[in-house]
Each structure stands twice: as C-alpha cells, then as structure tokens.
C-alpha cells in the first residue's frame, strides 16, 4: 500500500465509527491533518513505513473515534467492581450447578460427552447473567444521569445492633415450623393435603435410614441452635459482640454440615427428592458463605470505626 492508501484506510476506519452527519467532514479534515503531519516532519517525501509509524502513534481508529464524541457510559465507574464481582460470582454459581447436574449422568456418559453436555447446558448459556447485569447497570447509570438528585447521598439512621422484633419473631416461628417439617414430613403433608396425601408423597419424603442415624440429628442440633440464637436476640432486642460471634460460628458450622451432607450418601430414599434437596443445599451453602464473608467484613469495619466514633469495638 502506498502512503495515500494507508491514510485513506486509517481515516475510513476512524470515521465509520462516527455519526453519519460527521463522517465526510471529519474524514476530509483528518486526512488533511495527517498529510500535514507527514509532510511537515523534515521535508522529505513520506514513506509508507513513516505513515504507519505516525498512525500507530496517533492511536487505534476505535480509540481516536471515541475522542471525537462524548463518551457513552454504560457501567458507571463506581459500579464497575460491584458489576465484576456479581458477574463472576453469578457465572461461577451457574457453572457449578450445571456441573453438578451433568455429573448425575456420569455413569452413562464419557468425559467428552459430559463436557459437551455441561458446555451447551451451562457453560455458554451462563453468559446471559453478565448480559443481564450490563442491562441493569446501563439502566441504573441512565436513571442517575436523568435524575441527578437520586445520586445524592443522604444519611440514614444507623443502628445495626437493633433487632426488629416483628421480623425476628416471624423468623423464630418459621424456623420452628421448619424443624417440625424436617423431623416429621408426614405432619405437614397431612396439614396441607389432609388424608388426600398420596402414598407416593409419603415415599418421596421418606428419609434414608443412614441419614436419620447420623446426619439428621446433627442438622436438628444446628438448626435448633440457630432458633435458640434467634430467640435470644428476640428477647434482648439487640445484637451484641458475643451474639455476632456465635452467629458467624453457627453459620460456618451449618455450611460445614450441609457440605458434608452434599457429599455423603442419600438424604431421602427417593432419588428425585434427593436431587432437588441437594440443589437447595448447594444454594444455601453458597449464600451462607457469602453472608459469612459480609458479616466478617462488617465486624472488621465496625472494629476499625469504633475508636473514632467512640463506640465500643466488637470484641
């Protein structure tokens, strides 16, 4: 390519990224300026090598085109890290769940078939999640620009130690109902369906004998401790350093126990129930671990702020 062709190629690459009404005008000007730059260096005849050198220093056509028009912000810089974290965690969860679903067929499929099944079922489709987040971020960025008052920060009363007794009361009732449902599935089947509960429903929720012997009682103990903690908070009305530590410890114990159950034998005698419950347990473990990480971060933050605000540090 000669110098003229190189310049034309570059200029057309830049202007094709600009609005149509600007293209001809910018193309004429940019070509003229680049020709001036080449001719003005030392008076010698420009060579294709020198033209390439100049254009590479000028910048990639896409980057140059961006400088000609106001930047379009799809994800606010302030949201970038949140977006990245949510995208990575979301995709990881979808991949993991897809992997577990595919591994159920490991007896009938070979490694390559399993990979293909995972790739088409979860690997590639998981990318809908970052796409969804991009759309949400773009809408949020647009709303903030359109109504700038929404960007204004305003203080909220912060008393994170106070317990909302109404919601904690509901949580205690729900947890107790959950323990009853776990211990005796027949009770809620009868409560919901009366005598109409089919024998198949009974069979579907019949525990495996090995689970009932060891892990079942352990689950009841951990959930029982959770209920006791909720009840204590309901009575006292406030979180305290000790109850926060107990809460984190119980969360970790619950995660450990549920992970053990995931990898141990069957929970229910019926395989379909097992699969659904395992998926639910996996989601509970992942969300609990995220919750523990957030609680630990909050504890560290409160410890760091306590000396400045005069509030006692979380011990």
């Amino acid at each position: 390519m000669n110098v003229d062709e190189i310049l034309d190629s570059y200029v057309s690459n830049v202007v094709k990224r600009l609005p149509r009404r600007q293209r001809v005008d910018v193309a004429l000007e940019l070509k003229s300026l680049l020709a001036d730059e080449l001719a003005g260096e030392d008076g010698t005849r420009p060579t294709p090598e020198r033209a390439l050198e100049l254009l590479r220093a000028f910048g990639r056509p896409a980057d140059v085109a961006v400088r000609y028009r106001p930047a379009v912000i799809i994800i606010d810089p302030a949201d970038s890290r949140v977006f990245l974290r949510a995208a990575v965690i979301g995709v990881a969860i979808i991949w993991l769940v897809g992997l577990l679903a595919v591994l159920r067929e490991r007896d009938t499929l070979d490694g390559l078939q399993l990979f293909q099944r995972w790739y088409t079922g979860a690997g590639l489709p998981a990318l809908w999640w970052p796409g969804f987040l991009v759309v949400c971020s773009a809408v949020a960025a647009w709303v903030r620009r359109r109504w700038p008052r929404l960007r204004q920060w305003s203080p909220r009363p912060v008393d994170r130690d106070r317990v909302n007794r109404f919601w904690y009361g509901l949580a205690v009732i729900g947890a107790v109902a959950g323990i009853v449902a776990l211990a005796a599935p027949r009770l809620w089947l009868d409560a919901v369906f009366g005598d109409r509960a089919a024998a198949q429903a009974d069979a579907a929720f019949a525990y495996d004998s090995s689970f009932v012997r060891v892990l079942g009682p352990a689950v009841l103990v951990v959930v029982g401790l959770d209920v006791a903690l909720l009840f204590a908070l309901l009575v006292r009305g406030r979180w305290q350093p000790l109850t926060r530590r107990i809460d984190i410890g119980l969360n970790l114990a619950t995660c450990a126990l549920l992970t053990w159950i995931l990898f141990a034998g069957k929970i229910f005698q019926a395989e379909p129930t097992n699969q659904i419950v395992r998926l639910a347990l996996l989601i509970i473990v992942v969300t609990s671990l995220i919750a523990v990480a957030r609680k630990l971060r909050a504890v560290r933050l409160r410890s760091a702020l306590a000396p400045q605000t005069g509030r006692p540090a979380v011990r």
Partner: peptide, 11 residues
C-alpha cells in the same frame, strides 16, 4: 499529541 488535539477541536 495530535491524536488528542484534533478530536478536541471538534468537541
């Protein structure tokens, strides 16, 4: 830099 100045004039 020319890549900075020329687009700036347009903006």
């Amino acid at each position: 830099e020319e890549g900075t100045l020329y687009p700036l004039l347009r903006r």
